[in-house]
Design a protein around this nucleic acid. Structure first.
Length: 1015
RNA sequence: GCUCGAGUGGUGGAAUUGGUAGACACGCUGGACUUAAAAUCCAGUGGACAGUAAUGUCCGUAUGGGUUCAAGUCCCAUCUCGAGUACCA
């Protein structure tokens, strides 16, 4: 009986689904007494294109691990669901008018069908979809929790807003140490109590962990929405590559900056890839320094200019100050004389997009405001400039410029002829700034003279704090995260507005469901798409969403028109999986205390600064609120590499026609210039292309035989299609220049030897139908190149087709066999025959009976078979623990090759062997397991135990090296002492031949390893 | 520019603490079976040189140095590729 993988795989997939084989037990259910293990894949967005073979790589790895852990006796949770809100569905809706919910549901169906075919051990009873109201109810709920919280720096955690109000009522905000907006005014208890309700609400907004504020945002006009920093790559939108500009808008933000230090510290205890941790560290961007205030001379009651600097030790080197053009003081301090210049400059920089600004970092620009600040120590006047090299978004948007110690300040000073005082001893600053901190001795700096960087830092901060114009400060690059999107297909906010102030809808009325709209575009007056909704107002009497025409601003109020960003739904989904159908709570405490956190998280590295940072932030918030027991949600994380496509190219010959007539005033009679599309194309095989190159001039006179052939083919076509026989004036001739263009061709038309299936090729597209092919050795050889897998490159390989042709087990094995999980690697379908052949051999190993009948014997296996089995157990177990799945596939191959040649049929070997293989190739394993006489699924069979005794050897084949080079091997007993080994080796005739009479200087013997003879 | 990662046959890759470089597979070559093809099975396959052959010699893990009895592995310098980041004061 041969290996019918299609039947076997369908049978077991059905069995698993019907028996809920992979349903994880929650507390109180049977199975929950086992230790828990939580394996999670990163939330997929169900795109319309479906899966290609690159997508399941991580899922296969996590599935192997999950199945392995079940064999090891764990209660394994391996859930899957969909991050189903998102831009592509909405863009598609805008184009076609189809409701995103409809297309999303279709896409999910496709995804599910594809995933099912690969035989994953997902617990589908836990599936969640972020766009499902029963799910986003809890996303809205978390938003409300954040709104009702503030960050207390004294306790270093988030607390309920009521505790803040209590402090305000008792002592105002003088002693409050909170993470809040920079511009909070100070007030006493009396003042607070006297404030209007509106004023109190506005003040509280400055403290809440999610808050509404006028902020500078990244506005993407093409997408009609704002974007978070992590959604912008190289100055353009991550999705679609559209330009982004800066704009001030009233937006919801998340006070993630409150957690900056904890997000940084938490990285230490995470078993995550170092590059990922590095990029989070980078993103958070902690720097230590000082905050220093500079008073504006004759500024009246203008606020002081605060600057953040990491080099307060260089304060005596300040020769000017620079403000970002957007800085709020710019308009207030600019003198009448400088007004025109400054305004022009501010206008010009506002127009420049992020991309422009980044593209020319070299151009130095700025303007003098005419105002001066007072140096806090020397009391000297310092000119205040503005310049776009100072970013509004970092620090305070202003810098004290020390041209001798900072290259940017130096360049600016040089450009505008500002003096560059030198405060470094014995350093030449005529060419560039001196930025070295370690070898610095300060001079020309009053009380800092003669001090090193470290000492000067301490001294100057002490002095500044004493005199009251500066203090030590830690600054973070990370900004608060913008949380509003001007999109339709996202979570609606549970928010309505009373007199322009946001009000939360009570939890018990959630979810606030996404309203229907006629158009998914922004409204004509520029409101977000929800502005098109007709039923989108909140009635505080009935607590329902009601028609907009009922808005009276006394009982019925307008609802928020923005929606939440993509990361909202994915920032707590891992916890929701623990209790996904709970309608009363986001999850029960019982469930979260059992499951705790994710033990293994697998996904792509592209989420480093988005999803993974936001999720950690929400987790810490949930931890502060006592809702989760762990303040990090995933102990171990692995980034799987990308699978690249191996594109195939055919080489199309391009030729051209010219016409001899010019200046003709009767265009109708002019002969029509033939177009190449009138003729079939000519394609040349790879080596012909390599011989000729991309361009060839004067080819008709060349004696290159390939060019002669091409010339002949073209002539034949011209005759056949009567190219020169059309009527008209003038002569048409063929140009003597030739070009050859590599064109992507579908990889499915190419075999493992890079030969094009010519018949299939001609059928594949109409334009190929009559094409002429110039072959080499009777074959058409295509070119190959490794590129990203994408539809436009015709190199996409669909897993369905692979499952159809080779089976899911082959696909799973092959994806693992390609190479280390973390590495990027090219896909080449040809290689799959190797693992497919292995599965056939494996099947055969259990079917050695008459006519291929199933056969296992109860005989005691040979010692060497036990040895094969146990070294396989050892290696595979180590490999899985180290996530080295590629090497275990090789190990299986070696084991099956050995057992086959040993003619092993013993149950005592074949039974444990199939358990070892089952995490990798579960379908064939289940089938063989049932043939071995079991009625239960193999999935919970205990993993075989490794026993050292089967591997004990009595001899070792020693490599005998001379001066480190292996010359021959010798089998020696492992019982021998060093001296005995040396005697045996020296007595060997080959040793004598190698030495040729010389006496060795030294003989190195490492028993059980190697012998090296030096001399 | 900065930070991190990686360079091993024709290809994907293996070599766990320095100890037989190229496991396992693809591809290729030759053979068996077949009218033929596919499938399957067997043998060979890093390069160069010598020999009818068994075999032997030399070279070989991006490049150049170094440490060591011994280096793909450790150290220094250089080159190339990839990823992230980008006026962060």
């Amino acid at each position: 009986m041969s290996y019918h993988f299609n039947e076997i795989e369908a049978k077991w997939q059905k069995y698993w689904a019907e028996n809920q084989t992979f349903k994880a037990a929650n507390p109180g259910e049977e199975g929950a007494e086992k230790p828990k293990y939580y394996v999670l894949d990163m939330f997929p967005y169900p795109s319309g294109a479906g899966l290609h073979v690159g997508h399941p790589l991580g899922y296969i790895a996590s599935d192997i691990y999950a199945r392995y852990k079940r064999h090891k006796g764990f209660n394994v949770m391996h859930p899957q669901g969909y991050d189903s809100f998102g831009l592509p569905a909405e863009q598609y809706a805008i184009q076609t008018g189809q409701h995103p919910a409809v297309t999303t549901a279709e896409n999910i169906k496709t995804y599910r069908r594809q995933l099912d075919k690969i035989g994953f051990s997902f617990d589908w009873s836990r599936e969640v979809r972020t766009s499902d109201p029963s799910y986003y109810k809890w996303t809205q709920w978390i938003f409300i929790q954040l709104f009702n919280s503030w960050y207390n720096k004294d306790t270093d955690k988030a607390e309920d807003i009521s505790s803040l109000i209590a402090i305000f009522e008792k002592e105002g905000n003088i002693n409050v140490n909170a993470e809040a907006d920079d511009d909070v005014e100070q007030f006493s208890a009396e003042q607070w109590n006297a404030f209007s309700d509106e004023k109190q609400q506005k003040i509280l907004l400055q403290y809440r962990l999610t808050f509404l504020s006028e902020t500078e945002v990244n506005w993407c006009p093409a997408l009609g929405t704002v974007l978070a920093n992590d959604e912008i790559v190289n100055g353009v939108s991550e999705r679609g590559g559209h330009p982004v500009e800066r704009k001030k808008m009233k937006q919801w933000s998340m006070r993630i900056s409150a957690y900056a230090q904890r997000l940084l510290d938490g990285l230490d205890k995470l078993d995550w890839p170092q590059p990922l941790k590095d990029s989070q560290t980078n993103w958070i961007g902690r720097s230590e320094g000082a905050m220093v205030s500079f008073a504006v001379i004759d500024g009246g009651n203008l606020p002081k200019i605060n600057v953040f600097t990491t080099r307060p030790d260089t304060i005596f080197g300040v020769s000017f100050m620079t403000l970002a053009p957007e800085h709020e003081l710019v308009s207030k301090i600019t003198t009448e004389a400088q007004k025109e210049e400054v305004e022009a400059y501010v206008k010009a920089t506002a127009k420049r997009s992020e991309l422009d600004r980044m593209a020319d970092v070299k151009t130095i620009s700025g303007a003098f405001t005419g105002a001066y600040a007072e140096h806090p120590f020397t009391k000297e006047p310092i000119p205040i400039w503005i310049g776009d090299y100072v970013l509004a978004g970092y620090g305070t948007g202003a810098v004290m410029s020390v041209p001798c110690g900072d290259q940017r300040d130096y360049n600016f000073a040089k450009h505008f002829n500002i003096p560059i005082p030198n405060i470094f001893e014995g350093v030449d600053i005529s060419k560039e700034a001196f930025t070295d901190k370690e070898n610095t001795v300060i001079t020309n700096s009053d009380f800092l003279n003669g001090l090193s960087y470290k000492k000067a830092m301490k001294t100057v901060i002490y002095e500044m704090e004493k005199r009251g114009f500066g203090y030590k400060k830690v600054n973070y690059r990370m900004r608060d995260a913008v949380f509003s999107r001007q999109r339709y297909w996202g979570e609606p906010f549970p928010v309505y507005y009373v007199d322009g102030l946001p009000q939360m809808i009570d939890e018990k009325y959630l979810p606030i469901k996404l309203p229907e709209v006629e158009k998914y575009l922004p409204t004509e007056d520029g409101k977000p798409p929800l502005g098109n909704a007709e039923v989108w107002a909140w009635c505080t009497e009935t607590n329902q969403v009601v028609s907009n025409d009922k808005i009276n601003n006394t009982t019925v109020f307008p609802l928020e028109l923005n929606t939440m960003p993509g990361w909202a739904g994915s920032s707590q989904y891992f916890n929701r999986y623990m209790d996904p159908n709970n309608a009363n709570e986001i999850f029960s405490q019982e469930a979260i205390n059992y499951w705790q956190d994710v033990d293994l998280y697998i996904g792509g590295s592209e989420h480093a600064t988005g999803h993974l940072l936001y999720s950690r932030f929400w987790q810490k918030f949930m931890f502060d609120k006592g809702l989760v027991p762990q303040d990090e949600f995933a102990k171990k994380l692995i980034n799987q590499g990308m699978i690249l496509g191996t594109s195939a190219f055919v080489y199309r010959v391009e030729w051209f026609y010219t016409r001899s007539v010019w200046g003709e005033n009767n265009p109708e009679k002019v002969k029509k210039l033939p177009r190449k599309s009138e003729l079939p194309d000519i394609y040349v095989s790879k080596s012909i292309f390599e011989n000729i190159g991309r361009f060839y001039a004067n080819y008709q006179n060349s004696d290159n035989s390939f060019l002669r052939q091409i010339d002949k083919k073209i002539s034949e076509l011209e005759k056949e299609y009567k190219i020169f026989e059309s009527e008209g004036i003038g002569t048409i001739s063929r140009s003597n220049n030739l070009a050859i263009s590599p064109i992507h061709v579908d990889v499915s038309l190419v075999n493992s030897s890079d030969e094009l299936d010519v018949k299939a090729f001609k059928k594949a597209r109409i334009e190929y139908k009559n094409s002429k092919l110039l072959l080499e050795d009777g074959k058409y050889i295509v070119g190959r190149e490794v590129e990203k897998m994408s539809k436009s490159k015709y190199n996409v390989v669909n897993p369905d087709a692979i499952c159809e042709q080779y089976g899911a087990d082959s696909l799973r094995l092959y994806e693992m066999f390609l190479g280390p999980l973390e590495q990027s690697k090219p896909w080449n379908t040809a290689g799959i025959t190797g693992v497919h052949g292995f599965l056939k051999k494996l099947w055969k190993l259990y079917h050695t009976g008459k006519d291929g009948a199933f056969l296992v014997s109860e005989n005691e296996p040979a010692a060497e078979s036990f040895k094969t089995l146990h070294k396989t157990i050892k290696k595979v177990e180590e490999d899985i623990e180290n996530f080295s799945f590629n090497t275990s596939v090789s190990t299986f191959m070696i084991a099956v090759n050995e057992l086959t040649s040993q003619k092993c049929t013993s149950r005592a070997v074949l039974e444990p062997l199939i358990i070892l293989i089952s995490p990798y190739a579960p379908h064939i394993a289940e089938e063989l397991w049932s043939k071995l006489g079991y009625n239960e699924s193999i999935s919970s069979a205990p993993f075989p135990k490794f026993e050292e005794k089967y591997l004990v050897e009595s001899t070792k084949t020693y490599p005998i090296s001379f001066n480190g080079k292996m010359r021959f091997t010798m089998e020696l007993s492992l019982d021998l002492s060093k001296d005995e080994i040396e005697a045996a080796v020296m007595a060997h005739e080959k040793t004598k031949a190698q030495l040729a009479g010389r006496t060795p200087k030294k003989v190195i013997i490492v028993p059980g390893k190697i012998v090296n003879i030096v001399g």
